[in-house]
Design a binder for these strands. Structure first.
Lengths: 339, 339
DNA sequence: TTGAAAGCGCTAACAG
DNA sequence: CTGTTAGCGCTTTCAA
């Protein structure tokens, strides 16, 4: 780590005690061949001198770095941070470290991140696709070489790559029905880019929900935007400008819903009296806004844990077939959608 | 990385071309001794085969891993995530990676994190102390061995360790004066643990502010809590239960202020009519709540960048004296404090 | 102009 | 029971 020898090596221990390096190595690994006295002496000294094996050396030797690369669309939302915590949780148990990279929702940065992480010799990748990602060639190298790879939330190539998702269709269905039950009839949905699985699936759920409630689908009530605040605000504006504006809106994620909320308030409309609102968000944000937001909450920590578990399944059994774990969401009803 | 040789080595290139490994190495490093033809041939093949030097091997050899350990109190708030982005920003430029650990505001986890990161042979640490940290022995090893170490926001041993902070005293002063100017006279402050520099300094600013406004200090208006929602709620309750409750409150951070906001609303009090509220928070949260929150915003990204810059100063010049960078905050005035 | 050899820290096969 | 040796991928003397 530093010139001044701030780490002791086997060599140091060996010299100090007067045995060979391999004896020290074996002693530390409790090899049965080594005499109890030597073993004890070595272990004692190692403890005193705070010996820790050099992971670089081990990595070189074993061709395994015990590092996992994680790529997320951003680092600053609770959603991803909390998923990362979940990944870390199970990685730590296994003695693995994670190296985090953010794509900032850009395909180019995602590609770069894959490259860079591979350069560092991580043992594999756990990734959530960027919002721009609709070509998947940058994962070829991993897939072809059977390098552990897991997708979560925004996924692709699910027949080749293990993944963790939530039941998006069901979630959107639940929201739509909830609106209906509460007397809302002009239900709008602000979706994201169509090639994202989460967007597609939620749209399907929305359509299914309308159908099951006997409501007709109105194309003008299905808005689309990229996931930026700016675009989401515009999409909301378009909805509210409609000759017959919606009486209920739900949006694909945090960013979109909060943007919608601001736009609605800006126009002096009341939530839920004039327009009801429901989001896909997390606990914290939902309760801090006013009115408290009804929302689908993701089991974020579990998503991370499951992704990591799938990852280790790949590590331990590289030829296992690509599972998909589907987690359930919960609709938490608060004030923004009940009148 | 994987059995199947998913990375090419110098050896591979050497065998392929029919020269020695050292020749290949030199060719790739544009060593002048190597004939132009060989150099070109090697570089071409390396590019084709996507050769990247093995950082483990380099790390072993050079005793430098190009990794920085970063320890934050939590990963899920915008504040720290955004600082991490700043660190990453300058680390990337230098070709360094960062390894992130969260202390979860626990001293024990912080100590463990220091240990673990050191085990991985990071070249040094950038850390923000946990809320519980009031003993600093776990940094001795770094300091004594002159291993790069930088603190930010919550700092200690600033005469020995470079650090990045904001002008906390000034920020609290600004808030207090702002309240005064808007007609508030019973100004309360909810502080954090007293041994945290940020808490102390803000308290000083609060006191200085009262003084400069000609207000008397009322001990009952200076509350303290650990940084949990639970405790913050209680502290707010104590303030509001006072025979003469405050007409303005500010809190030490996000968590505290949002807890206060909820408690105030819960009691049917209006913000800012009954109680004004100001926080130390970030842009996003401040605008999403209702009413929009006046707050001191931290230059989080810059904090991260500066911390990383100090770090590299240590790496490049291990004997430089410990600088402290002080960044300024801004008071952004919104509805919650103006009547 | 190039190759051979040593060494960074470690393990494992092979000798004794 | 313990030591020697080779090798993981790389750079860097030292020889040629």
């Amino acid at each position: 780590m530093q010139k001044g020898k701030s780490h002791v090596s086997l060599k140091d221990l060996a010299r100090e005690i007067g045995v060979s390096i391999s004896t020290v190595s074996r002693a530390l690994n409790n090899h049965p061949d080594i005499s109890p006295e030597v073993t004890q002496k070595v272990q004692k000294l190692a403890a005193e001198l705070n010996y820790t094996p050099n992971p670089l050396a081990m990595g070189l030797l074993k061709q395994a770095t015990r590092m996992i690369g994680v790529i997320v669309p951003d680092l600053v939302t609770h959603f991803y941070s909390s998923i990362i915590s979940g990944i870390e949780d199970v990685a730590e148990e296994k003695g693995y470290y994670i190296l985090i990279a953010s794509s900032n929702e850009k395909l180019q940065k995602e590609i770069k991140a894959v490259e860079n992480l591979m350069k560092t010799r991580v043992e594999g990748l756990i990734v959530c696709l960027s919002q721009e990602t609709k070509s998947y060639g940058h994962f070829d190298r991993l897939i072809n070489n059977n390098i552990p790879l897991v997708f979560f939330d925004r996924v692709c190539r699910t027949d080749e790559v293990p993944s963790v998702v939530v039941n998006n269709e069901d979630a959107a269905l639940k929201i739509t029905k909830h609106f209906y039950k509460n007397g809302f009839r002009r239900i709008a949905y602000i979706a994201g880019p169509e090639y994202l699985n989460i967007s597609q699936e939620r749209t399907h759920g929305y359509l299914a929900g309308l159908k099951s409630c006997g409501l007709e689908f109105r194309p003008e009530l299905l808005e689309k935007c990229n996931l930026s605040t700016r675009e989401a605000t515009k999409a909301t504006a378009r909805l509210l400008d409609l000759p017959e504006p919606p009486d209920a809106i739900f949006g694909i994620n945090d960013t979109v819903v909060f943007a919608a909320m601001k736009e609605i308030k800006q126009r002096g409309l009341r939530i839920p009296e004039d327009v009801a609102l429901v989001g896909f968000t997390d606990e914290f944000h939902s309760t801090v806004v006013d009115p408290a937001l009804t929302s689908i909450t993701h089991p974020t920590f579990e998503i991370g844990q499951e992704a990591a578990r799938l990852f280790f399944r790949c590590v331990e059994n590289p030829d296992s077939r690509p599972d998909q774990v589907v987690l359930n969401t919960k609709l938490i009803i608060r004030k923004s959608s009940v009148r």
